[in-house]
């Protein structure tokens, strides 16, 4: 059987909110090392890679590897039925047709069970090569979300230019243009407020706002976001998920006509 328990459902609720805009369904690969999801959005522009390690769960049991096709829209609805402080347990039997979500209140006086039908999915797995990126920017996730939101008013794409001076986000459209420059922070009281730039070579890439604005739905998961970029390859936008894992979004850049 498969059983995975988290003491607080908040993490799983945030994970679902972070993927639901991009994915309508996805296969959850469960093994004794944890839960992995890799799925592209419908337009095959972006890819979501989610990894939750078994040792990050309060209880984790997976007797045999399982691939469970889940409807993300339904799963999001179910997770919204849990209070953030509720314990959440995912349970499925071998060769399952269904998965059960069990929410238990901290006082243990309320126990809710939701059963969701699994779906058969065609799987298309992509091999993501290990890449040394020219620029890696770590910055406050709320700042990145704010920049994406603000610049989206000006155009449908954001250009990210990273040099040793700092990182510049810009957008241009019919009504004008905007740019926001961030320099590496010299000294900060709190690590999560730092902007840190690791640059081997300058990079300038352009990305569709629509996808960036979906990625920033992961902001509640982590105070910092890591952006990894190299010329002519997809952006990696990564959020840690506490001590349990991470979510990575890959986004194909715009190509000059």
């Amino acid at each position: 059987m498969f059983e995975a328990r988290l003491a607080q459902s908040a993490i799983l609720k945030k994970v679902l909110e972070a993927v639901k805009d991009l994915l309508s369904e996805a296969t959850f690969e469960c093994s004794d090392s944890g839960i992995m999801v890799q799925a592209m959005d419908n337009a095959h522009v972006s890819l979501v890679s989610l990894n939750l390690r078994s040792d990050g769960f309060d209880k984790f049991r997976c007797d045999r590897n399982l691939s469970m096709g889940m409807n993300i829209t339904t799963m999001t609805k179910i997770l919204r039925c849990a209070s953030s402080e509720d314990t959440v347990t995912l349970r499925a039997w071998d060769n399952p047709d269904n998965i059960i979500f069990i929410f238990e209140s901290p006082s243990k006086e309320k126990l809710a069970e939701y059963e969701m039908k699994l779906i058969n999915m065609d799987q298309e797995h992509l091999g993501i090569p290990e890449t040394m990126y020219s620029c890696v920017v770590k910055m406050p996730s709320a700042e990145f979300a704010r920049i994406c939101k603000d610049l989206s008013q000006f155009g449908e794409a954001i250009t990210i230019a990273c040099s040793k001076e700092g990182v510049k986000f810009s957008a241009a459209g019919d009504y004008g243009n905007a740019n926001i420059k961030l320099a590496q922070t010299a000294e900060v009281d709190k690590e999560e407020e730092a902007v840190c730039i690791d640059m081997q070579e300058p990079v300038k890439l352009t990305f569709a706002c629509r996808y960036l604005n979906s990625f920033v739905k992961a902001t509640p998961l982590c105070a910092q976001v890591k952006l990894s970029m190299s010329a002519d390859v997809p952006l990696v936008c990564e959020y840690s998920i506490g001590e349990i894992g991470h979510i990575r979004y890959y986004l194909a850049p715009k190509i000059d006509d």
Partner: peptide
């Protein structure tokens, strides 16, 4: 602002 690339043109399908 250019043509939108597809992610599966960058990564090999396994």
């Amino acid at each position: 602002t250019g043509t939108q690339g597809r992610i599966d043109s960058f990564f090999k399908i396994l």
